[in-house]
Design a protein around this nucleic acid. Structure first.
Length: 524
RNA sequence: GGCCCGUUCGUCUAAGGGUUAGGACACCACCCUUUCACGGUGGUGAUACGAGUUCGAAUCUCGUACGGGCUACCA
């Protein structure tokens, strides 16, 4: 980390971290939802910025209207909010370097694109999509399965390099559809230092003349990212590994436009992989786990993709598991709060290899977080979940006790429904089959007596209940163990839940006795 | 096809020239528990392959193989 010495008024010297600004870009389009890899990119950017006392900013990429999905932008910010990763600057949160939405910066991008043409680093291209397709077809060979618009091809196409100057002028004056392409130099080695991978080099002869400004006047990512990073004074640019191959284009643009010395430091994060390569939206449905942070309902296809939130993950657990997918602090610690992550995160310890997502381990993280969560942190979510299942909780104090009692056995939030419904509502059906084969008069008599004894009990708690139960069983000559399962079925309805006597304690005297009597009749 | 990145138990990973290659998830066994879990103890299980450098290589170098990414007027 770099430091800059700052003299204080008193004359002493103190070290201040140089201000860091990192940014993340979002397209409110591709699939709409923010998938695992996207959120992790945000997370690492966020952690880095916060750790170094810098600013974390989000830019919105609404470059391609045909792909723009309504609602996606709001969705992005909802997701960031749920994850606790709100940016310091963005369309929604404001800041001093706006506008942050790409479509509102069109004039700026054009200005720099024209500048490049003037300096001989870019050119106008008038080729139609059909002509491009023809080119790709005509020049396709066995050695080159996908020909690029590059130094070999460009002189055979219709652009300001091949056309006479007055012809170009005329086409432009007529408003002919055109794009601006970067003119990649012939044989030049472009290299840069990636904070995770070290030095990476490319030969420009394999880079194509990327479109910088599209026919509709919108910039491509390549132009926008460089111009914005400069104008918004970005110091660090981190993104996914899938961007590595386009880095040379960006380096060249920095060189031509703003100077290499002003280029942000960059890092490319490893990909998050699904069972088969890069994690895709399809993998979720295919393998049965969520790939989006929050449920995304595609307004175009009306297709719903379930998210981690709706699946019952705690946001704390979600960012925890994401952080550990490609990074660790070198110790054996695995459970981190956001604050700890900020404190301990370091780019040097981010892996360079892709990480395959494991849903089982993800669930383990959530389980750990539920177990260590304070009851208050869970209460609202559980209450809502119960309400969704038709159970209204009238007694919050009881709910608190119930959550405390059952949270150790809940992996996902919805598990609370099964584990705690019966505290608020008597089970509608009892697992009679589990009891009947061994049910007899002796047991029936026991429970009739136990109900009577309970009625008379002066104290009502698990210990007293259990002692009474065991004493009575002894008197009747029945093993207490044989009576516990029927008792559980009576109260819970099935073979699950916390220890029976704890359940009875929370249920209270009246309810417990009522359930015993009701069940005795059902067992016959 | 070309270019780039990568490769330690099934999965996430630790080990920065010298360790019986460590931990976690999952799995198995036992203990605890007469429900289901939690928890505890133990177990199975990895340095892709081949050369080289070195007294010594998971670690450094090269090659091979395999995996992934990119190769759009998408990001």
């Amino acid at each position: 980390m770099k430091f800059r010495a700052c003299p204080l008024r008193e004359g002493s010297l103190s070290l201040h971290a140089m201000s860091k600004r990192v940014r993340v870009r979002f397209a409110p389009s591709p699939t709409g939802g923010l998938h695992l890899g996207g959120v992790r990119t945000v997370l690492y950017n966020y952690l880095f910025a916060k750790k170094h006392g810098g600013d974390f900013l989000v830019r919105i990429e609404d470059t391609d209207q045909s792909r723009y999905v309504p609602g996606a932008e709001e969705y992005i910010f909802d997701t960031l909010k749920w994850c606790g990763l709100e940016p310091d600057e963005s369309v929604q949160y404001g800041g001093n370097y706006g506008p942050y939405r790409q479509s509102e910066r069109k004039a700026t991008y054009r200005q720099y694109a024209e500048q490049l043409v003037k300096d001989g680093h870019a050119y106008y291209a008038f080729d139609t999509p059909e002509e491009l397709e023809k080119m790709r077809h005509d020049f396709k060979t066995e050695q080159n399965s996908s020909p690029q618009y590059d130094s070999n091809i460009r002189m055979k196409m219709r652009n300001s390099l091949t056309l006479a100057a007055d012809e170009t002028e005329k086409l432009l004056a007529e408003g002919t559809r055109h794009v601006i392409r970067i003119k990649i130099p012939l044989h030049e080695t472009v290299s840069f230092t990636d904070m995770i991978r070290g030095q990476v080099s490319f030969d420009t002869s394999v880079v194509d003349d990327k479109v910088l400004l599209k026919a509709d006047g919108m910039p491509t990512y390549h132009l926008a990212v460089v111009v914005d990073d400069y104008l918004m004074k970005i110091s660090h640019a981190f993104r996914g590994e899938e961007w590595l191959p386009s880095a040379p284009v960006h380096i060249l643009l920095w060189k031509y436009l703003f100077g290499l010395e002003n280029m942000p430091q960059c890092a490319h994060f490893p990909l998050i992989l699904g069972p088969n390569g890069k994690l895709s939206k399809r993998d979720g449905a295919k393998y049965g786990f969520p790939v989006f942070a929050m449920s995304w309902n595609d307004p175009k296809t009306n297709e719903l993709t379930e998210g981690f939130k709706e699946k019952g993950f705690l946001p704390e657990a979600f960012i925890n598991l994401l952080a550990l997918l490609g990074w660790n602090d070198g110790t054996e610690q695995e459970i981190f709060t956001k604050e700890e992550l900020i404190e301990k995160f370091s780019l040097e310890r981010v892996h360079s290899a892709g990480a395959k997502f494991d849903y089982e381990k993800a669930k383990w993280f959530n389980h750990e977080w539920i177990k260590q969560s304070a009851v208050g942190n869970l209460q609202l979510a559980v209450k809502n979940l119960l309400a969704q299942n038709g159970i209204t909780v009238g007694n919050d104090a009881l709910l608190e006790k119930v959550i405390g009692l059952v949270k150790d056995r809940c992996v996902l939030l919805p598990d609370f429904v099964q584990q705690s419904s019966f505290f608020f509502k008597a089970p509608e059906t009892l697992d009679v089959d589990a009891v009947k084969p061994k049910w007899d008069e002796g047991k029936k008599n026991f429970f009739v007596a136990y109900a009577e004894k309970s009625q008379a009990a002066a104290e009502w708690n698990a210990t007293v209940l259990e002692n009474t139960f065991k004493d009575l069983a002894g008197e009747k000559g029945i093993k207490p163990g044989e009576l516990q399962l029927p008792f559980r079925i009576m109260l819970v309805g099935g073979k699950f839940g916390p220890p029976v006597f704890n359940i009875a304690e929370l249920l209270g005297k009246e309810e417990t006795i009522e359930r015993i009597n009701r069940a005795i009749n059902m067992f016959g």
